[in-house]
């Protein structure tokens, strides 16, 4: 009897992430619909997907990648340039975004293969600033003006064609991308690669003793992590109908880190929760662009200094206290 209850409890626990994920689809409707709700939700989905890429590095590899804006902008620019100049549709530009993101990550990953800790962060950070400089100065990529006039997102399929004219229409795509990213991280956590990454972070000597090729694991995780971030950039380009060198701004970097750290690291739904909190603050409770910068920075600093396990960690701590 007890055994059965235990089993059903476990099954419920295993199903919980999927149920939560399914529920997320209805959030804009529950929140009342309307264009501002939809645009906020699409933005949250896009930014959360962007953060999930960095999450794979920060939570499971234990490194701080300050170069993820490269993949974010890479995806955005791939979508912008190919849709405006070659009239590629949604599928092709998405594929191109992934290819661009993965290639850039492979180059940067190989170059930083044997760097650790702050050297790794420094080099990825420097790479992002240099990428910004190149994009800003290269007229072929639109230079400092960026790329304007990106057409509406179109996705053709056997069941019908899709056009993303408004944020409400974009929501299913944004949601699908978010769901895929969460499933991807869920799968990654349980995969051999995810386990090896965690082991390489927690106990590198043990990992090596067990025959884990740490450099290979690091490179694989780094390359994989570029995929969600690049796809987020892809959708961002269509949502804004514009990309520019501002995609390299430190804002996105600090945003990704805050979205991960604020709820707590290694929490499956953490980045989407963190993203939602910050975007809702900036959309509905903004105190001006510079004030919001202070808020974002303060959140990041406070969590790490006062309560490093984040909001979820605090919540779990409170639950345990109540249980006693």
């Amino acid at each position: 009897m007890k055994d059965r209850r235990e089993r059903s409890f476990r099954a419920a626990r295993a199903a919980l992430p999927f149920a939560t994920l399914a529920l997320l689809f209805f959030v804009p409707e529950i929140a009342g619909g309307g264009s501002i709700v939809y645009s906020t939700c699409v933005t949250i989905a896009i930014f959360a997907v962007m953060a999930y890429g960095a999450d794979a590095i920060l939570s499971y590899l234990g490194e701080v990648s300050l170069g993820h804006t490269i993949f974010w902008a890479g995806g955005g620019y791939a979508a912008a340039l190919l849709s405006t100049r070659l009239a590629w549709d949604g599928w092709l530009t998405a594929l191109a975004a992934v290819v661009v993101g993965v290639s850039l990550a492979a180059i940067l990953g190989l170059a930083t293969l044997r760097t650790r800790e702050f050297v790794f962060s420094l080099v990825t950070y420097a790479a992002a600033i240099v990428a910004f400089e190149i994009v800003f100065n290269w007229q072929f990529l639109g230079g400092s003006d960026g790329v304007v006039g990106i057409p509406l997102l179109t996705l053709t399929s056997p069941v019908g064609d899709f056009t993303g004219g408004s944020n409400e229409e974009l929501w299913p795509v944004a949601y699908a991308l978010l769901a895929l990213s969460i499933l991807f991280i869920h799968r990654f956590r349980r995969s051999r690669l995810g386990q090896e990454a965690l082991m390489a972070q927690m106990n590198p000597d043990l990992a090596m003793g067990l025959g884990v090729n740490i450099q290979k694991v690091r490179l694989m995780v780094f390359v994989l992590s570029a995929v969600p971030t690049a796809l987020a950039g892809w959708l961002y380009a269509f949502q804004r109908a514009y990309v520019g060198p501002d995609m390299f701004e430190a804002y996105f970097l600090v945003f990704m880190l805050t979205a991960i750290i604020l709820p707590g690291r290694r929490v499956l739904f953490g980045p989407v929760l963190g993203t939602a909190i910050v975007i809702v603050q900036q959309t509905f409770f903004s105190i001006g662009g510079d004030g919001d910068k202070i808020i974002l920075g303060t959140l990041l600093v406070l969590v790490l200094i006062v309560w490093p396990s984040g909001l979820i960690g605090a919540f779990r701590f409170a639950l345990r206290r109540l249980h006693r």
């Binding site: 701080v64 600090v254 510079d290 910068k293 600093v301 790490l304």
Partner: peptide, 14 residues
């Protein structure tokens, strides 16, 4: 690293 990055962002805004 992350804390000092956060400080930097606060200082930029301030």
């Amino acid at each position: 690293m992350i804390v000092t990055l956060g400080f930097g962002y606060m200082l930029t805004g301030g």
